[in-house]
């Protein structure tokens, strides 16, 4: 489903040029659950952002199905994200001024095909992650685990083909972290493709494939025996 060819990402500041990604080649098949690991600054998040088209590679090709995403303009990328992707962030990134239900609904309003049953789909997504009882609350009234589950509900409400999770358990205690991993596993079991950045080896072990990065390169790609 996903093919990265020779992806490079360089940042140029006044004096220094930093290479965040160097010659990344990566294939991800539909239905995979991939964990990306590596030390801080190795390029994990940059890779995830590139996959999520919120950051553009300096060079290389990014094929999604048979579309080359590097060739798309901003508006086309925005539509692509709205229709295809779901994001889960380490710091949740819920909008403070919106209630949980409204935050979840945000995952639908930029989709042109969202149609009439928005409320139903929002309710279903919240139900799936177990936060329906918090629908009318604001983010700051929820615990970290609840906020992250709300963020997952927002990511899945549009039934995306690909879920990108950037350290989804990084700000959570082990019990809440485990709950989030359980949700991701069950989503994967239902057919969603998941790519997740994590620092936790135990959570990485839950994924079917583990990619190790160092200094902007992929140094190992290990498939877990099932």
């Amino acid at each position: 489903m996903i093919r990265l060819e020779n992806i490079q990402r360089r940042y140029v500041s006044d004096e220094v040029e930093t290479t965040a990604l160097a010659d990344i080649d990566l294939d991800v098949a539909a239905g995979e659950f991939v964990a990306i690991m590596g030390p801080s600054g190795c390029g994990k998040s940059t890779l995830l952002n590139t996959l999520g088209t919120v950051d553009r590679p300096t060079a290389g090709r990014y094929l999604f199905g048979d579309r080359d995403l590097v060739a798309l303009n901003e508006a086309e990328l925005a539509r692509f994200r709205a229709m295809t992707l779901g994001f889960v962030f380490q710091s949740f990134n819920l909008i403070d001024e919106l209630t949980i239900a409204e935050n979840v609904e945000l995952g639908l309003i930029y989709r042109k095909d969202a149609g009439g049953d928005r409320k139903g789909r929002v309710a279903a997504a919240m139900d799936r992650v177990g936060i329906s009882h918090r629908a009318r609350h604001y983010p700051h009234q929820l615990s970290g685990g609840q906020q992250q589950r709300a963020a997952i509900a927002r990511a899945i409400v549009g039934k995306p083909k690909l879920i990108l999770a950037d350290e989804p358990t990084g700000n959570l205690d082990s019990e809440n972290g485990q709950q989030v991993m359980d949700i991701l596993t069950s989503l994967n079991a239902d057919g969603a493709t998941i790519i997740m950045v994590t620092h936790s080896p135990s959570h990485a072990d839950i994924a079917r494939r583990r990619i190790d990065m160092l200094d902007g390169r992929i140094v190992a790609s290990l498939a877990r025996a099932i």
Partner: peptide
């Protein structure tokens, strides 16, 4: 700015 980032990650266009 951050909210705008979230909205864009979720597929909002510049016009939105």
């Amino acid at each position: 700015v951050k909210e705008i980032g979230i909205r864009k990650a979720l597929g909002a266009s510049s016009r939105d």
